[in-house]
């Protein structure tokens, strides 16, 4: 990888007064990570509840539309907060993430997971019974659910691995 090309930017960012302030106050990073993990909890649990319904394992007594409308907001609204807390961690230690190929992988997986969630939720917003109309659509919805769960889980694993794959 040529992530080392980001060296000058990372050095500049780490020297800014904002980065210095975060680095100096010892409580900020664990506090921001706590908020980050709480948002992860919201996203992961909500995705799981929707996917269990899609796979026909859970919540079979409810329509897909009611499960989705209950849990989708808890997938979407933590995302801005995840970006802000994640960005704060990057400002504190720019090279730790930006020059780390696992971080790049995590962002790619995130785009994939968001895309899969949109592919599921946009048609559902137009037509509540979209994924239940034909056998093909029911099958597609199950495929989406089986792709979505491992994808989100991989993001969590990649996030933890960033701490163990530091470029020196």
């Amino acid at each position: 990888m040529t992530l080392r090309a980001l060296d000058p930017f990372c050095t500049w960012l780490a020297a800014t007064s904002l980065s210095q302030a975060i680095q100096t106050a010892e409580w900020i990073i664990p506090a921001v990570q706590t908020v980050h993990i709480l948002c992860v909890a919201s996203v992961m649990s909500s995705v799981l509840m929707i996917d269990l319904r899609l796979l026909g394992i859970g919540a079979r007594g409810q329509t897909l539309e009611s499960v989705a409308s209950r849990f989708l907001p808890f997938v979407w609204w933590p995302l801005p907060l995840l970006l802000v807390t994640g960005a704060t961690l990057i400002v504190a230690e720019p090279a730790r993430s930006l020059e780390n190929s696992v971080f790049v992988l995590k962002m790619a997986l995130l785009l994939g997971a968001v895309a899969v969630t949109l592919v599921f939720s946009l048609p559902l917003a137009r037509d509540a019974s979209f994924w239940e109309l034909t056998a093909g659509r029911r099958w597609s919805a199950r495929v989406l659910a089986s792709v979505s769960l491992p994808l989100w889980a991989a993001i969590v694993f990649a996030g933890r691995w960033i701490a163990y794959t530091q470029v020196s």
Binding site: I37, L38, V40, A41, S42, V43, M44, S45, S46, L48, M49, A153, V156, F157, G159, R160, W161, A163, Y164
Partner: peptide
Amino acid sequence: PWIEGVHVLALSLVVGSIA
């Protein structure tokens, strides 16, 4: 790190489902 990944994934589901 692998076990830690499992732990974070599991705790996110514990906290989220309880929430």
